[in-house]
Design a protein around this nucleic acid. Structure first.
Lengths: 154, 154
DNA sequence: ACGTCTTTGTTAACTCGTCAACAAAAATAT
DNA sequence: ATATTTTTGTTGACGAGTTAACAAAGACGT
């Protein structure tokens, strides 16, 4: 994923959390929380997702994911399974209902992404370069250069 | 407040909420939450602040502010007073302790603002214009042109 | 002056996530 | 192989804010 795409995803994350956006997801967010949708997204994208993996991926605690997964289970959006050779780890997969939430979210996500890209295209090449540089540098400043991330957390 | 300053304040708000920033406020945020500091800031800036005014200014509910003010009272950072002619509204003012929190926060805020401005100065005039335009347009897009805000909420 | 409507601040019940403590399983060391 | 350490998922207590319901005070219309 290149820098421009990373920035787009940052925008989308901000937008998702802004009140203005809530209305756009008609239906989706009525019964399911935003975090739950993201959790579904994560489960849909990850290979053998368990509580630990999801929590790392989403930046939440294991305890939090444990509870969210409980909610998703009770809503019938995901189900649990295990490897017979490993009685410790518990994996999740999407049910049919979960898959349709996943698809709906992806669809919205892509639409929003398109809109941002279109918005971005209004600018001249020089302007785009400037904006991109600015965000890349801010991102590095606030969170450190991406690849160093794991290193620092030790 | 001009566009550039608005944008700086948006950055600062983001930065305040980012984990990276928490460490910078050494001391300040140990005993007092970020929201509480913002509430103190609001009380310090507002004329005759009451629960309703603060809640509108901070974008939280009256119930929320009611509870936060309770915490701040118990910490001795603010005190209540009333207009003898109005037995309904209750106003707040900073105590000496509250004032020093207010000052410390303002100091940090200004320092961070300076840092952002310095960061911004690394860019050429053309780049600055592009970046500024970009943020102004995003801001308008997401939240509507500022002056229309109240109109829309009706 | 009086009844109605609105505003104000508070509280209880709830949601959502954190932290801390834990038991069970797995990995590692000896 | 067995003891120790680490990893994993869950739970209870908590913190922070929301919604809904409420009483008290004020504003307003007549």
């Amino acid at each position: 994923m290149n820098e421009a795409q990373k920035i787009l995803d940052i925008f989308i994350r901000i937008q998702e959390h802004s009140d203005a956006f809530q209305h756009k997801q008609d239906g989706l967010l009525d019964e399911i929380g935003l975090t739950e949708v993201h959790c579904i997204d994560c489960i849909g994208m990850t290979d053998h997702p368990n509580v630990t993996k999801i929590s790392e991926h989403m930046g939440l605690t294991r305890a939090g994911i444990s509870k969210i997964s409980k909610r998703l289970l009770s809503k019938g959006l995901i189900e649990r399974y295990q490897d017979p050779d490993n009685k410790k780890e518990i994996y999740f997969r999407l049910t049919e209902g979960g898959q349709s939430v996943y698809d709906a979210h992806k669809k919205i996500h892509n639409k929003v992404r398109q809109e941002w890209m279109a918005f971005f295209e209004h600018y001249s090449d020089d302007e785009k370069v400037a904006i991109l540089r600015f965000f890349t540098e801010i991102n590095d400043l606030l969170y450190g250069k991406s690849t160093d991330k794991l290193e620092k957390e030790k």
